[in-house]
Amino acid sequence: MTSTDGLTGLLDVLQAALDDPEVAPVDLAARAHLSRFHFDRLVAAATGEPPGVLRRRLLLERAAHRLVTSDRTVLDIAVEAGYGSHEAFTRAFRRSYGFAPTAVRRRRPLTFRELELPCPSGVHFQPPGGLRLPAARQETPMNVLQHLVDHHVQTLTAIIDRAAGLDDQVLDRPVTVSVETIDEQPTLRSLVNAMVTQEEHWLSALRGGEWPDESDRSMTGLAARHAVAGRDWQTFVARTLADGTLADTFVDTTCTPPTTHTLGGTIGHVITFAAVRRTLAIGALRSAGVTDLGAGDPRPYLDRVARATTD
């Protein structure tokens, strides 16, 4: 068994105990088939925190997430976290976060990661009900850019391989744009909505939330939605790049069953699918006589940014 396997086994015991915060430490050790002494020693050595401290922190992180993503009472959430009263929970929460539980509902975080309390191990509560271990290695922005290029080259190789099995009539036939893998029967409105919803969707997933409300598809409504989601998406990407957490994972609670993704993979996903939709939307605008956006090529923008940083 590797050290990672051993840590995972210990954390499995602690994760299961989150729903039973009153379980005694000796019983917790027994679930891991260890004496209380050895269980405490192993958890402290692996995570830098005694089991009781680690468990209380994880319960507070879970409680903070539930405060943000549900309308349940503070007392209900406090009891689930193992506190006997609203007051005791508020004191513990304020001591750890620096503000009261009700304040987190007034200032909802950009992502659930902002609710993670400092710790030496990098082990945190991960919505909807799991634990997140730190990534074994980290990705840099250059790694992700290279991965995107590698993905393009490999996909183009596969396209050529598949096309080699087709006859000349098919190969030379005029292409009718096929977007079944992107959107079904897209319109300019549906493309714009899909791009805005994509920002909202992934931000909600990163907060441990549900699918966003996309009912307002008027251009005024879409502009208002994008003003918020676009800003928050840019902020999330900037923070992820600055923190070097591209390889970290989260659970997408908007899909069934919930699926685990990396932060870098999610950013790459949005860039790729948004580029296709953006190109289609700009083409639809051109057909409507709006031509000032050109082809939507990012190169001129990137060139201008590069020049601005060197001037």
Rank of each mutant, 00 (worst) to 15 (best):
A103C: 01
S178F: 07
R95P: 03
R132N: 06
V74R: 04
R72V: 07
C119A: 15
V177W: 05
N143H: 15
L156N: 11
G129F: 09
T102E: 11
R56M: 00
R137Y: 06
V144Y: 03
R66L: 12
G130K: 11
R113K: 03
R132K: 12
P127Q: 13
G130F: 08
G122Y: 09
L58N: 05
R137L: 04
L148Y: 02
F99I: 00
A163M: 11
F93A: 05
I159M: 09
F93E: 02
T140H: 02
D167H: 01
A158P: 07
V177T: 15
V123D: 12
I160R: 14
L115S: 06
L60D: 02
F93M: 04
V104I: 13
Y83S: 04
N143G: 05
H65G: 07
A135Y: 07
A78N: 12
T157A: 15
V53D: 09
T90I: 09
R72Y: 02
G52I: 09
R113S: 04
V153R: 14
T69P: 06
V177Y: 11
L58T: 04
L67V: 09
D168I: 11
L131S: 14
Q126F: 12
A92M: 08
V68Y: 13
A103P: 00
L171M: 13
G130N: 14
I160Y: 15
G130M: 04
H124D: 03
R56Q: 10
S96Q: 08
A163W: 08
P109H: 07
H124M: 05
T155E: 14
D168Y: 03
P120R: 03
E61Q: 07
V149S: 15
L110Q: 07
R108G: 07
L59P: 00
V170K: 09
R113L: 14
L171K: 13
D168Q: 08
F89T: 00
A64M: 02
R56F: 01
G52L: 10
P120T: 12
R56G: 02
G122R: 07
G129Y: 08
P134E: 15
Q169I: 12
H151Q: 12
L117W: 05
Y83R: 02
Q169D: 14
F99A: 01
D172M: 01
H151D: 15
D168A: 10
Q146I: 13
V53Y: 04
A64D: 01
V74K: 03
S178V: 10
F112I: 02
D76M: 01
R91A: 03
L60A: 03
P174S: 05
H124T: 07
L148V: 05
T73K: 13
A158I: 11
P174G: 10
R66H: 05
R106L: 14
F125Y: 14
V53T: 11
G84Q: 06
A63E: 03
L60V: 06
T155P: 06
L133A: 03
V123P: 11
L145Q: 15
A92P: 01
R162S: 00
N143C: 04
T155G: 14
T155A: 15
I77T: 01
G82C: 02
L75M: 05
G122V: 07
Y83N: 03
L131N: 14
V68F: 12
V170Y: 13
D76F: 02
D71G: 14
G165A: 09
V175P: 00
T90K: 08
V53G: 02
H147A: 12
A136S: 13
V149F: 06
R56C: 01
V53F: 02
A88G: 06
E61W: 00
L67Q: 10
R108Q: 12
A163K: 09
E87M: 11
F99D: 06
T90Q: 12
